[in-house]
């Protein structure tokens, strides 16, 4: 019960945070220099043309009124029109968000799938050579900038070895409309198109690997530290004295209590990559929301910027809420007391 009220409180706070976020971004987007109408029309547009467009966009009205209009649109689920693409921001975000989400999801699966076992290996062979190797690798992975890794992988796997494609989500020649979820891996399976699935996976590998490396290193280090901490607990020694086999002690008795820190950090990484993946998205010409967000900011495409920020914010809140629930599932102490 306490856990439930804890979650409800988190949701209410999140709504408040989102409202605050919308205000701050709204003001910042309008205070920074540069006139959206001027930038959209180009340097040779006449002042009259610019004024007309400003009026069209509502930029001549008081700031408070502009904000009210924006909120009104938001409640209808309408984010307005993008100056950059001249399409509804809703449509732009729907497409680009799916691309980014698929990329980041794949990134997290890689980061957890390799990071956690590596951390377990390092903790199990603490101070032996596997530990040294994992720690070296983890530091290396954590400090290598993702754009550098992206270029390196592109050159190596793409241009030198011709193993994997280096740009986009699918080959241009392949006709496929991702119409259900927008996630190619899922939609292709739903449509029974295994060829599309394979291609989508091949296109995902390099960008998600570039993004995953840092998180993977962090996961490995966190899991290692957490496992070592737990391995010194009395209940692990007790399990040994009661004759629980070693493999079970490591994979169950030690892993589960160690899992909360990596899980929490994973949630934060997951949410922040949605907006932070832009460098890798640009290197791989990935049609994602992070790259879209950067382009719209440079263009002072106000509606689109607000849309991207709000969607990222909501996503951040949702991911963290999910993580809270998962943490409660992993560690009953959280569920029972509402905290750890």
């Amino acid at each position: 019960m306490e856990f439930l009220s804890f979650l409800v409180k988190r949701v209410l706070w999140s709504v408040l945070v989102l409202v605050g976020l919308s205000m701050v971004i709204f003001v910042i987007a309008r205070v920074v220099p540069g006139d959206p109408a001027r930038m959209a029309l180009g340097p040779r547009a006449s002042p009259e043309q610019v004024a007309t467009m400003q009026a069209e966009l509502g930029l001549d009205r008081p700031l408070l009124q502009q904000y009210a209009l924006f909120i009104e649109g938001l409640t209808r689920g309408d984010l307005g029109k993008s100056l950059l693409t001249e399409r509804p921001v809703n449509d732009d975000i729907r497409e680009t968000f799916a691309a980014t989400f698929e990329l980041v999801l794949c990134t997290m699966i890689l980061a957890m799938g390799f990071g956690v076992p590596l951390g377990m290996i390092a903790a199990y062979w603490k101070d032996k050579w596997p530990d040294t190797a994992v720690r070296f690798f983890a530091i290396f992975a954590a400090v290598t900038p993702s754009f550098f890794l992206a270029l390196l992988l592109q050159i190596l796997a793409g241009y030198v070895l011709h193993l994997l494609p280096t740009t986009g989500r699918l080959p241009n020649a392949l006709e496929f409309e991702a119409s259900w979820t927008g996630l190619l891996l899922i939609d292709s399976l739903l449509a029974g198109r295994l060829d599309v699935f394979g291609e989508a996976l091949r296109h995902l590998l390099l960008p998600s690997l570039s993004l995953a490396a840092a998180t993977m290193g962090q996961m490995a280090r966190l899991t290692r530290a957490s496992m070592i901490d737990v391995s010194r607990q009395d209940y692990i020694e007790a399990a040994r004295a009661f004759g629980i086999p070693e493999w079970l002690r490591v994979t169950k008795y030690m892993l589960r209590p160690s899992f909360v820190p990596p899980l929490t950090i994973m949630g934060l990484e997951f949410a922040s990559l949605i907006g932070g993946a832009f460098v890798v998205e640009m290197v791989f010409a990935w049609p994602g929301m992070a790259a879209y967000g950067i382009r719209t900011i440079l263009q002072k495409d106000l509606n689109a910027v607000m849309g991207v920020v709000m969607v990222s914010g909501v996503f951040f809140v949702l991911v963290n809420l999910t993580i809270d629930v998962l943490v409660g599932f992993v560690d009953p102490r959280v569920r029972i007391r509402g905290r750890r």
């Binding site: 009395d234 007790a238 399990a239 004759g243 008795y253 102490r333």
Partner: peptide, 22 residues
């Protein structure tokens, strides 16, 4: 093979000798 079957241990600290998550 003898642990827990031929000889068993009663642990000292009940607060820390049980796994908190199971």
């Amino acid at each position: 093979a003898l642990r827990g079957t031929a000889m068993s241990m009663v642990f000292q600290d009940p607060m820390s000798s049980l796994n908190p998550v199971f």
